[in-house]
Design a protein around this nucleic acid. Structure first.
Lengths: 181, 181
DNA sequence: CATTTATTTCTGTACATACAGAAATTTCTG
DNA sequence: CAGAAATTTCTGTATGTACAGAAATAAATG
């Protein structure tokens, strides 16, 4: 497994991006490598290509499987596992979003609702805290509700929505468009 | 500065969320505190409320100012700086998105374009690498293009877009709606 | 201009995470 | 069921980041 210049730059940058978004650098690199690979790879091959200990590859692959980003393939006559990821970027993107929503947005909404309830009785400064937390809750609820609806759309509809960009507002009913001009 | 139970839980959770999204825990906590506060706060007050050294508060505030999330207020007859953040969640959200796009998406697009160019000449396995990187580039370009258009919308239009959820597809022109049913 | 007060930068330490290698476990083969 | 091969878990080390306190700088007052 010899990495080309482009592949190496891509993988390194991806690792860096992962780190900035709270994903382990090695985990992100392993995923980037699998994304670029035409075939499924063994843990051995991944470790060699990235110069990373197999133990770390193992941990990273487990993590990626927990995120539903990597699947395992078995081959008859070979006891090794072969790992692959989707080559469809939209699939990958939606998977990550789905996971982060479940792991972070949903628990955060629960926390916010708890807080709003807790801060019910209280003085005037408590009232401000309560309304601010409630505003945050409402915001996340709104985004989350939008996400829950949109994720059910078939891929082509989603694509066409994105493709329209702000053009979408041209066909909005009056109520939504009124304040535009 | 005595924190209520709700405020404390909110701030701690927010710090945890920040950590998961690549934001320093203390930075996120400082911002959460400012978000809940009815008035602008001094570095001293922030440090006291969060039990954090003033030096860290200073660093965190600087970071938040770099992100355009925190503003400084001066008061006549007081030499201290007072720090505040917007209480409008949409404003905060859009600020963060704008910053992350500039700092991460745009540079990533540049990297991807470099890689696609680099991988131009090359064998058959290089062809796969090139097409995968190009696919990623196209995806990010699409999302980024959408973002660039949508961010120019006035807040009410954006709100109504979100509010519609998947209902938006009901008024899509035929081309976008065709494959829905 | 000396003195006090606020803020920022610097530096050592503590803590947490990443990781390599070893050990243990599981899976497969004859 | 013994032996081999692959994988996972465990453990010590190393690297990096966070942060408190000190030092330095900047701002303001009398």
């Amino acid at each position: 497994m010899e990495l080309s210049d482009a592949a190496r730059e891509f993988i390194l940058h991806w690792g860096e991006m992962g780190a900035r978004w709270g994903v382990n650098r090695t985990v992100a690199q392993v995923h980037a490598l699998l994304y670029l690979s035409p075939q499924a790879l063994t843990a051995e091959e991944i470790g060699e290509a990235l110069s990373v200990a197999r133990s770390n590859v193992s941990t990273s692959l487990k993590e990626l499987q927990n995120w539903n980003l990597v699947q395992v393939e078995s081959r008859i006559g070979d006891r090794r596992d072969f790992f692959r990821t989707s080559s469809d970027v939209w699939t990958l993107f939606l998977t990550v979003v789905e996971q982060r929503v479940e792991r972070e947005i949903v628990p955060t909404l629960e926390m916010l609702n708890r807080c709003v309830a807790t801060a019910r009785g209280g003085g005037s400064s408590q009232a401000v805290v309560r309304s601010r937390i409630a505003a945050m809750r409402d915001f996340l609820e709104e985004i989350h509700g939008w996400y829950c609806q949109v994720r059910k759309l078939p891929a082509p509809a989603l694509r066409s929505l994105i493709g329209m960009g702000s053009g979408i507002t041209r066909i909005l009913p009056k109520a939504g468009r009124r304040r535009l001009d």
